[in-house]
Design a protein around this nucleic acid. Sequence first.
DNA 1: CGGAAGATTGAGCAGGATCAAAAAATGTGG
DNA 2: CCACATTTTTTGATCCTGCTCAATCTTCCG
Lengths: 255, 255
Amino acid sequence: MTADSPTANVVTLGGLKAACATCNLHELCLPHGMKDAEVAELERIVSRGRPVGRGRTLFRINEPFRAIYVPRSGAVKTYTLGSDGSEQIVGFHLPGEVIGLDGMVEHRHQVTAEALELASVCELPFDLLEHAAARVPALQHQLMRLMSREIAGKEQQLLTLGDHSPERRLALLLLDLSQRFAHRGFSASEFNLPMSRQDIAAYLRLAAETVSRAFGKLQREGLVEVEGRLVRIASGAELAAFCGYAVSGSQRRVC
Amino acid sequence: MTADSPTANVVTLGGLKAACATCNLHELCLPHGMKDAEVAELERIVSRGRPVGRGRTLFRINEPFRAIYVPRSGAVKTYTLGSDGSEQIVGFHLPGEVIGLDGMVEHRHQVTAEALELASVCELPFDLLEHAAARVPALQHQLMRLMSREIAGKEQQLLTLGDHSPERRLALLLLDLSQRFAHRGFSASEFNLPMSRQDIAAYLRLAAETVSRAFGKLQREGLVEVEGRLVRIASGAELAAFCGYAVSGSQRRVC
DNA sequence: CGGAAGATTGAGCAGGATCAAAAAATGTGG
DNA sequence: CCACATTTTTTGATCCTGCTCAATCTTCCG
């Protein structure tokens, strides 16, 4: 039984216009590298809706694909239901990260997107976006960059799931979140997890108990300090080394 | 200790021009949905190289990203090396499937691409492709479709790895390959695996022995017949049911 | 034909899932 | 604001399954 109510609770976003130019996610999101006039073009397309409550869905699996979504605040998870009815989380999405691009091929969403916390989300109708991209090369470029980022990110996830040790899988997730928070101007060494332990378990394909024990081990090893959802990473380099990365100065994943 | 020689064996593809218009992968590849004149535009960009031998690489991880690749014949695997030096396969690529799109964001390849068998591969310099896409909306659309397909495909892989039973993981791979072969005009019920058991193991994140035993079980259950690399699927519906799919007429993944 | 790599089969072990229960956190209504 | 109910998280004990090690058999090359 999920926490979600069985009734349809899909949020229809309203028609408020956006101000991408002044958005602090500017550099992470679609506007990156675009001129003011081009951003204005984009703003005609984007609509901001009213905040989406925790547990509410942006869209559900198999629904027709009409738009992509970008949270401005609040985290979102995407998942499908496994054959046994369990949630299989395929992604956590922080502000500035595009959601729903996988729906374009089949013209329907491949996953369900649900807010992990109160979230403000931008909605971009895809047909309009594609039209605009055909006229604005910088937009086309950035859109493809975001898709490429998505592909590369999913590959990283595959590598994370491929690791056999639960502690390393968890450490890889924490490291990933740390870097993504850092790019958003938050601390890389201390942050609040937007998701529950069960969500982490469903993402790492582990039992919730195993996740709990993995947190314990990482803490005992002195790699992280955990207090509920608050995580403090003692040394990013050490944690990276624990994950098997040859530590070499700077990190990957730009912008 | 890979089978690969330690010396650089990157294949530089030659400058032969392509004939996308008459290619039998037309409908699967970039030209899909494009007019003749638009395909001609594409042909100016594509170059076919001489066949790539088994074990040869199209590109290696961390090399600068310059082009994407599409095999016309022959299968390709993409992988990275895990912390323990083992191969972590993140994708098998059949003819008509684009390779290398994940390299665009970071301007460098995120994986190594290696031919599983003798393969003819088309090379598309990405800067030229992007320029052309800006002028030809149909090309832009198709390029984005292929990227979306890639994202959706990786998500499916995540779900495959998420399954805890080795037999189901293997069955999901076989089912996936079956459908992809079928789209290429080959038999969905009988085909030759282009990859070794060890490759399958590295892809499913299982021990090679476990893969061998999983094949045995599937065979004993009467779901498949296996003779070396030859696989015969008795009933696709039964196999799908075994994987936990609610069987409902047609299958997913178009084009 | 011979050597080497690949695939299969068997035995034992270790680690993560499962079941069960307690503890902590969260939220709700009075 | 507090008490209570519910959910979430943690901890413990046991079981099972996939990994490991080892040997045999097969296939694929030169």
